[in-house]
Amino acid sequence: MVAIKVTGLNKTFTKGKKALNSLDLQIDRGEMVALIGASGSGKSTLIRHISGLMKSDSDNSKIEVLHQTIQENGKLGRGVRAARSDVGVVFQQFNLVNRLSVLTNVLVGLLGQIPRWRGTLGLFTRAEKMIAMKALARVGIDNLAEQRSSTLSGGQQQRAAIARAITQGAQVILADEPIASLDPSSARKVMDTLENVNKEDGVTVLVSLHQVDYALRYCPRTIAMRNGEIIFDGDSKRLTPKLLEQLYGDDSLELLGSKQQEEPVVTSLPEQAVA
């Protein structure tokens, strides 16, 4: 069964730069897929299109997630809000609301499912709070539920964001560079959590990564992008350094960076540099 289907996706930014070039993509339910590529290759743009946070060019294109239309020909689908509630998005900068408690940030995941008036007033039932607490326990930070999310470390915040996606009951999780701003051990915890959700709940995971070694370790399938096009799609094991060099030339060093050193290199992008 198809989880994500993208056909003929084009995106041109106002400066005339082509970010995505007639891109086709299909991911089945239960897959855990890595999306790799150097910065500027279009990974984030693709994920933002699939989650309906960005609109494509208005030519013949279509994005479906779980058979619900997210967008078609550059227009968001009518049921996009309902479709979004089935898709959990995890961002590089976590995108939690700093001044709210961790628990509230996770409860936000239920907004798409509970009656609107109750969500708007922020009235969550005990049962709903329990769902959120269970999700927090699952990612291992239920002891931090009452703290403001700004007080958490980057890795903890990212796990809270994953708890939000779990609470949402998401069937598909899109993770946009979830570990790019984390230290190696936090990065591993976050990837372990994503893997756990994929294996135990059968949630489809599409995760964009900066570094190939994480793709090799966690994802059976890898999609590699360059200049807005998919240049490789298949078994992660086939992605040898040699092939990467063929695909990316000098840029392959950026993707392999972590392999030549003991610890993976943390690409600490400045906050504003989030594409």
């Binding site: 309902a82 979004r84 509630s85 995108n95 936000v108 995941g109 907004l111 969500g119």
Partner: peptide, 14 residues
């Protein structure tokens, strides 16, 4: 970005 995080859960504009 936090607003996007909320939007991505299927929340309404309000």
């Amino acid at each position: 970005s936090p607003v996007e995080g909320i939007r991505a859960t299927g929340a309404t504009g309000l």
